[in-house]
């Protein structure tokens, strides 16, 4: 009887540790008085990581010209195939970007975008970057297609962003806070 094989213990009827089972009740009861870990989202927005990849934006030069030259490298790099660029020639009367061409149409389909940031990496002029905003829900799929005007406009700041200092120190951020 010294060797109790696994097969025998498998059919064991009662919990072999009744005291521990009762201890479990104490554990669950104690939890009630702790503060819940839930973050009440719409009221409290947890600051995102500074390099968090959210909604895109297009940039302009200081003189007002668009940085984008319509090269479509971002569209080529996009794994989700959600960027559509149609380029047109700049003319002396209508100069939109400093290069030869500019993006006549620049659309991002946000319902397909996977926020990988490859467009940002591919761009030779830093014309497109990913911002921090993640509140991109819409009632209509068509509204998910962002046009060039929407992307060029100064985005509304909806989401708090954590202090970059917190992350760029060699001390881990969770210790730096205390």
């Amino acid at each position: 009887m010294s060797r109790r094989c696994a097969r025998e213990t498998e059919g064991l009827l009662v919990s072999p540790q009744p005291v521990d089972t009762l201890k479990g009740f104490g554990v669950t009861f104690k939890q009630i008085f702790k503060k819940p870990l839930t973050m009440q989202y719409p009221e409290y927005k947890r600051p995102v990581y500074p390099r968090f990849r959210g909604r895109h934006r297009l940039w302009r030069h200081e003189n007002g010209l668009e940085k984008c030259v319509g090269c479509s490298l971002c569209a080529a790099a996009c794994p989700a195939d959600c960027i559509r660029v149609v380029a047109a020639e700049n003319t002396p009367e209508n100069r939109v970007s400093p290069g030869e061409r500019y993006a006549r149409i620049y659309e991002i389909n946000m319902s397909r975008c996977i926020f990988c940031g490859y467009c940002e990496l591919a761009c030779p002029f830093d014309a497109i970057t990913l911002g921090n905003d993640y509140e991109l829900a819409e009632y209509d799929r068509d509204d998910q297609i962002y046009t060039k005007d929407m992307l060029l406009a100064e985005p509304i700041k909806r989401v708090p962003v954590a202090d970059a200092e917190l992350y760029d120190t060699p001390i881990p951020y969770y210790r730096a806070r205390s």
Partner: peptide, 8 residues
């Protein structure tokens, strides 16, 4: 149940 699981 929520409070026992540290939820609201």
């Amino acid at each position: 149940l929520g409070r026992m699981q540290l939820r609201y």
